[in-house]
Simulated assay, not measured.
Amino acid sequence: MANTAQARKRARQAVKQRAHNASLRSTLRTAIKKIIKAVEAGDKAAATAAYSENVSVIDRIADKNIIHKNKASRHKSRLNAAIKAMA
């Protein structure tokens, strides 16, 4: 347990920040799932639209250091490759 006032405050702030980060991570996962769902449906136009809509979400969360920028790039690359592979 935190012994000083400063440590107690940092513990309080950490709880609040963790909840915020968890919310952003959830938003990221939802964005990725939307694109995957569109790809699995087989509609290339819908998948492309979902991709262009949600790429900014992925980038924004990477900019906030919720995930690493390389991980964001990897997700975008794989999702884009899946869309291009559609017949």
Rank of each mutant, 00 (worst) to 15 (best):
M1D: 11
M1I: 06
A2W: 08
T4H: 07
Q6C: 02
A7K: 13
A7G: 06
R8V: 00
R8S: 10
K9V: 08
R10P: 02
A11E: 13
Q13P: 07
A14K: 14
V15P: 03
K16L: 05
K16A: 15
A19T: 12
A19Q: 10
N21H: 15
L24H: 14
L24R: 09
T27P: 01
L28M: 12
R29Y: 01
R29N: 03
I32D: 02
I32E: 03
K34T: 05
I36R: 08
I36L: 08
A38K: 06
G42H: 06
G42W: 10
G42R: 02
D43E: 14
D43F: 11
K44V: 03
A45Q: 15
A49V: 12
A49N: 09
A50F: 06
A50N: 04
S52T: 15
E53I: 02
I58M: 10
I58A: 05
R60N: 08
I61S: 09
I61A: 04
D63Q: 11
K64W: 00
N65Q: 14
I67C: 01
K69C: 00
K71N: 08
A72L: 05
R74H: 05
R78Y: 07
L79I: 03
N80Q: 07
N80W: 04
A82Y: 02
A85V: 08
A85T: 12
A85K: 10
M86T: 01
A87P: 15
A87L: 07
